[in-house]
Every structure is written in structure tokens, then in C-alpha cells.
Write a protein that binds this DNA or RNA. Sequence first.
DNA 1: CATGAATGAGTATTCATTCAT
DNA 2: CATGAATGAATACTCATTCAT
Lengths: 233, 233, 233, 233
Amino acid sequence: MAGPHPSTTDSRHTPRGRIDKRNAILEAAFAVFARDGYAKASVDAIADAAGVAKPTVYNHFGGKEGLFRQAVSTTAERATARSLAVVHGLGSDVDDLAHALREVGYRLLLCYTSEEAWALRRLLHAEISRFPDVFDTVRGSGPDQFSEALADRLARLALAGRLRLEDPVRAAEQFVALLTGPVEGRSALGTRPVSDQELRDTVAAAVETFTRAFAVPRGRLGDGPSSGQEAAL
Amino acid sequence: MAGPHPSTTDSRHTPRGRIDKRNAILEAAFAVFARDGYAKASVDAIADAAGVAKPTVYNHFGGKEGLFRQAVSTTAERATARSLAVVHGLGSDVDDLAHALREVGYRLLLCYTSEEAWALRRLLHAEISRFPDVFDTVRGSGPDQFSEALADRLARLALAGRLRLEDPVRAAEQFVALLTGPVEGRSALGTRPVSDQELRDTVAAAVETFTRAFAVPRGRLGDGPSSGQEAAL
Amino acid sequence: MAGPHPSTTDSRHTPRGRIDKRNAILEAAFAVFARDGYAKASVDAIADAAGVAKPTVYNHFGGKEGLFRQAVSTTAERATARSLAVVHGLGSDVDDLAHALREVGYRLLLCYTSEEAWALRRLLHAEISRFPDVFDTVRGSGPDQFSEALADRLARLALAGRLRLEDPVRAAEQFVALLTGPVEGRSALGTRPVSDQELRDTVAAAVETFTRAFAVPRGRLGDGPSSGQEAAL
Amino acid sequence: MAGPHPSTTDSRHTPRGRIDKRNAILEAAFAVFARDGYAKASVDAIADAAGVAKPTVYNHFGGKEGLFRQAVSTTAERATARSLAVVHGLGSDVDDLAHALREVGYRLLLCYTSEEAWALRRLLHAEISRFPDVFDTVRGSGPDQFSEALADRLARLALAGRLRLEDPVRAAEQFVALLTGPVEGRSALGTRPVSDQELRDTVAAAVETFTRAFAVPRGRLGDGPSSGQEAAL
DNA sequence: CATGAATGAGTATTCATTCAT
DNA sequence: CATGAATGAATACTCATTCAT
């Protein structure tokens, strides 16, 4: 007998079909918004790209604004998850600290320079005045979590005696700034390719500066070699 | 008594009037573009804001695109000039290096966080895919000059024995990144006010990290406070 | 009692309604184009005249150009059909050849001098440089078919021994030229009325000249070929 | 002594300069109107083509309408003069009538198919509803004169016993119709080239038909009027 | 619910025409 | 008189949104 659950290929009137369509719309919407910007993107183009009729978009998301919010939020969450995973990979019991930071830094930079991430940032910059709430949403679910997580890891490294820092949040900000700042200009906000070597160089330089400023040297003796720095504070 | 010759404020049909009108259009255009973005900004609104008729805009700039290019370029040049002036104020014979860097950093951050600068960056981010050439123009006449100038100053400080750095360009990038990176998120891309104290704190933290990483300690005696850092190299 | 099913005059949102709207647009478009010329005709005016909204015009025809092509082609086809029907009414077994030619000629001239036909020709003349393809389309589906059909009939009359001619196509051209040429100037390209008598006179004169040049005289006896014509004068 | 009449090269403030400019404007105007049609032609383009400033056009002709009237009238007069000269070349004492008619017909057809003449007719057709008076002016000073002149010549030929016709005006109309009618379609209203051979063939066919219908045969004997025509085939 | 069709509002651009010089 | 500059009016085209099916 015919199973009561519809086949996955028959998308008509099935919850699965609805979800598929919803996701297709969201994906198409982000692509079109990223390509054309909010104002120039047309709901027609999005509906076409998603393979649905225009009113379907309205049924699902209420209108262009709602669609934008959802599309950006969804993409931002995905991006945040990736970055968080990288940060969580940074333990406090590493052997070679600089090496570990380079590893994490490189992976973070890969996230940061992904096509999707650039598009996301360009969209946020472009539409922040029209959609301040979207920025807040993304920020709250994204960079803030991320920043906190990174600050946590740095704090643990400080507790483990590997870093000497007062304000882990500030240090996290600076670590990220050292990583990403130089790339922003060189890649023309993501519109021009940056070689992997350039990425690695940037990471190396960032970690070099960061460790010079914050790392506790590991002498054979356990005594604090850089006590002078503490005095400098 | 008022002379019979038209006062300079009577701008009708004088060459001066033409220039005045051109500048008024450019100013209004940047304001409207910054507020609404390129696509949503209407030439009507710009003409109204500038107090001229719409065709006058077309006579002067050929169309919306040309107007955008000119408005952004002009504003960018102004902004660049300000930043350059600040950098040029950084001498190599300073007494208190950290203090000097804080001074320069603070002034740079003021430039960076001016309303105009935020608007400029938001516009560039938003429209870089539609106007890649504008980004190049602005970049060439702006940040690149600025970066070079800052790198020059840092190189001189290195020659003067005050900084220990291999790649002045990289160091300049990092200095700027440490200054501006943390502010970007805190001010929500310039849409929310940042207290002067927060600015100063950011500058202090940036300079602290920078000097820790790059400054040569200055003791009369050889007992540098941060001799540990030298060891760390 | 009124049936619950919508009457055929209720054209809203029914396929019939769509076709009605399409036809209304075409009709209005031709009228406006004919009145104002392509450049001065406004899509607004056409939409108004058709009783639809402007975007509906764009949905159906893509733009002003497409609308022009369709409107002209459609009208031309209608006009051609009328002329063809007249030509097909010219048999080769007529008793009184001159009478038959006058009959056909008069009917053709009625077609030629209809308001619609004048408007069509004026439009084609006016816009042939902007729409050479429209001229070709109309020509191919119109005058060429028409000319061929007339040439066919004349050829049959020649075979039937009623006409003496070498080149039926040329003869058809000349027959049409004799009919229409004199009317063109007298009616000021259709902008001034021509009396029915003037039409009939023109037809008579055209047929007179044509038969003098091409008709085989029909004496009871096989004698002198054109003596009858002289008598007719 | 310096001559009181300004040199022809100094066009400033001289009557000659004014006239030169006026003619330059008229020429440019006709060219642009012919190319773009009245509505699409821009005064700017005309002024540019004439090498003058826009207000100069207004000073000379009052506006676009006046300019159109003058440009078309002037060109039409030139064209009429040419055709009239051809007609005046048709004497009544010709030896070979058919030959003479072919000669005149060919020259008339050359006038008719000149680029300028096509442009003129296209313009008149296009704008007759907007400028009925222009049509009248042109018609009065052009085709009417021309038609009268041709009718005169035919009448003289009739008086000289060479043609047998009742209504010379009608005959003139028909002669022109036989000449020009077939060319109109073949050349796509002048937008496609017609070979000289085709022109000559058309002339020959027109004259053949015309003489068959109207020429008085010139046998040594007074025998059958059109027998010679049959021999001519 | 998904859809084809229709619409009202809005935008960039062009152009004939007019000043003040 | 000829000109550079400015303008008011008009136009083709687009798009977010909504019905009726």
C-alpha cells in the first residue's frame, strides 16, 4: 500500500516540500541580495532563482524586508557556527603556543575571507542604516558569541600562565584586528583574490606581534623572565 | 554702504555661482547617497537638497553614476587629507614615544570615527561590486598614501632606534588595525555613538600592545624594563 | 434568472479577459501610434486608451518597440486580408472585362483609402528607418502576397485570351499604380476626404488606360483588335 | 581702401556670415530631421551639426516648429526645381516619342529616387498630421507645379497629334504613377538601393504602357492604330 | 497554499525653451 | 546677436505588492 508519508521527491503539499521551498528561497535570496544589494535586488529575481512564484515568497516571508532579515540571519548563523568551531579548537594546554595561535588564526582567517562572509559583511555595511535590528541580531548571535568564546580561551591561557593579559576581551579584539585588518584592504573588501601565502604571512605577522605583546616566555626555569612587563603595566 | 556691484553671495549666473552650485550638488549628493545608499538615493532628492533643478545635475555630472563617483572621490580626498596631516605630525625625535603614538592614534581615530568617514566606508562597502573603480580610486588616493606615510614615519622611528621592526608597512597596517578594529564593532559601524573615553581606552590599549611588540626600551642604564621582550625575540 | 456563472462580459481575470485586454491594447496602440507617430506616442496614453495599467502593457509586449511591432503587424494583416479577398473575387471568366476590372479596382481603392490603410502607410513611411524589419514583415505578409495574387489573376486572364501581357507582375504593379497613384496626392496622404465620385473616376481612368494598353479586343468578328476601345471613348 | 563689404571669411557680424549660418542650420536641420524624424530629432543635435549654439537656432527660426517648416520647405523647393527642369526638357516636336518619354521618365525617376527626395517624402508622410500646412506648402510649390507643367507638355503633344488624350492632368498623374509606383515597393521606400537597370526597366515598362494607351501611331499609312505596338513586342 | 495577472507608485533621463552675459 | 547655463515638463520603464483562481 502507499505509505502515508509522501515521497521526498513529491514536494507538493508536504511539510518537506514546504521546507525545501523555504530553504531554496532563503538561499536564492541571500545570493541575489549579496549580488545586487537590497534596493536593487528584485523579488522577481529571487523567486526565479528559487524556482517559485513570487507570491510564494510573500506567503513565506511577508515581503522583501522579512525575506532580507531571514536570509541574512540564517546565513550569519551558519557563518558564526563555523568560526565558533574554530575557536573551540584552541585549547589551553598547547605545547607550542605560537603554533597553536597560527593554526587557529589561519582557520579563522579562512572563515573571514570566505565568499559568503565577505558578502555578509558587505550587506551589513550597506544596509545597517535601513536594518539596524538585523545588525544587532547578527552581532548578538555572531561576533559577540565569537568574541566571548575567544576571550574565554585567551583567559584560560592566561590562567595557564601562557599569556600575560589584563583584559581578555580587549586582547581577543586585538587578535582579531591583527588578523583581519590587513586583509581587508589587500583583498578590496573581498572582491579580489588573496593568495594563500599572503593569508599565511598575515597570520604569522599577527601572531608574532600578539605573542611579543602578550606571550609569557617559556624559559627552562620557571621564573618569570619578563617581570619587567608587569612593571610596565 | 552696499556697493552697486553684486555681492559675492549673489551667485546667479556668475562663474562663482557655477562652482557654488557644483559644490552644493556634490555635498548634497554625498549626504543623500550616505543616507539612502546608491540604489535608493534619488537624483530628485539630491537636486532638491542642493537647491538646483534636476537637469543641472545631469549637466554637471552626466548622470547618477558620474555623480556618485565624483561625490565619493571628493569626500574621500578630503578625508584622506585630514588623516595624512595627522600622520605627518608624528616626528621621529619624540621624547615619550608611547605618548606620541597615543596622540597620533587618538587623532587618527577621530578621523576614522567621524560621521563622514563612516558614511564613506559604508558606501564603499555597499557599492564596491557596482563601482570597483571607485574603490580603487579612493584606495589609491587615500589609504594607500596614508599607509605609506605612516610606514615612513615608523621606518624613521626604527632608524632612530626607537622601534624594532622588520616590515614598516606591515607594522603600519597592524597599528591601524589595533586602533580601528575594536571600534568597528563597538560603534555598530558608526551608527551608534562611542564615548570619547572608550576611544581613548582603545587608543591606549592599541599603543600598549604596539609598543610592547615593537618599542625599544629606553633606559639610561642597560637595565631595560622590558628586557624580557628582547629575550623573547 | 441570472446564472451564477460569470457572464461572458465579465472579463475580469478570465483567459477571455486576458485576450480582450491584449486586443484592447493593440487597438489603442495602433490608434495612438497613428495619431502621434512612434516617438511622440506615449505608453501612458496607450494604456489609458486601452483602459489598462501601464505595466500591463509591458507584461504583454515587453516595451514600446514590441508593442509597435505587434500593433502594426496585426493591423497590416487585417488590411492585407481584405485586399486579398477582393483580388480573389476577380475571376478569369468574366464577361465584361473592363467592368470586372472597375469593380475590383474600386473595391481595392476602398481598401487602399480606408482610414486604417492610410494610417498604416503613414506609420510605415515614418518609421521605416527605425523599424526596417517591420516594413519587411508587413511587406512580406501584405503587398507581396497581394501583388502575387493579382499577378496570378492577370496571368489567368492572359491565358484566357483576354489580356495581352508579357510580365504579369509588372502589369499588376502598374494596375495598382494607376489606381492608387492619383489618389495619393488628391487626398493629401489620406488626411483629406476624397469623394466617392472622384474615386470612381480614378478607377475608370485607370481601367481605361490599363485596358487600352493590355486588353484583347472582343469583336463579334475576329477583326481589328482595338476598334472597340476607340468607340468606347 | 578697405572695401566696405566684409570679407567672406570673416563671418562675425556680417550679413554673409549670418546667411552662412542660417544655411548651415537649415542643412543640418533637414539632415537630422530626415534621420531621426521630427519628434526624436533634438535641437541640440541640429545646433551641434550646424556648428552653432542652441539659442542661435532660436534666434533664427523661433523654435523647433519653425525650423522644421523652413528646412522642409527649402529642401522641397530645391527638389521641385530639379523636377521642373526635367519636365521642361520635354518638347512637343520630338521625333521618337517613346524615346523622349523614356528620357524624361528616367530623369524624373532619378529625381524621385534621390536620397533627398525619399527623405523629404518620408518626413512629409510622417508629419503630415502635425504639419498639414507644410504639406500644402510643399504640394503647392512642388508637385502641383510639376504636375501642371507635365500636363502642359502632354497637352501640347496631344495638340501636335502625337498623343490621344482627353484629360492631360489625369494622363500626367498616370504617367508619374506608372513611373514611380513600382519603385516605391521595390526600394522599400528608399531605404534599399535599386539598380540602375531596374530603374530603366521600370521606365521602359511605364512608357510602353503609356504609349500603348495614349500614343498616336505614326505609320506612313493611316492603318491600324496599335498594330505597330504588337510588332514592338 | 501556489500561481498568473494586474496595478500604483516611483525613478533616471531627455529636451525644448529661456535667461543673463 | 551668439552663447553657456539652468530649468520645468514629460516619458519609458521597473518593482513591490495584491487579487482571484
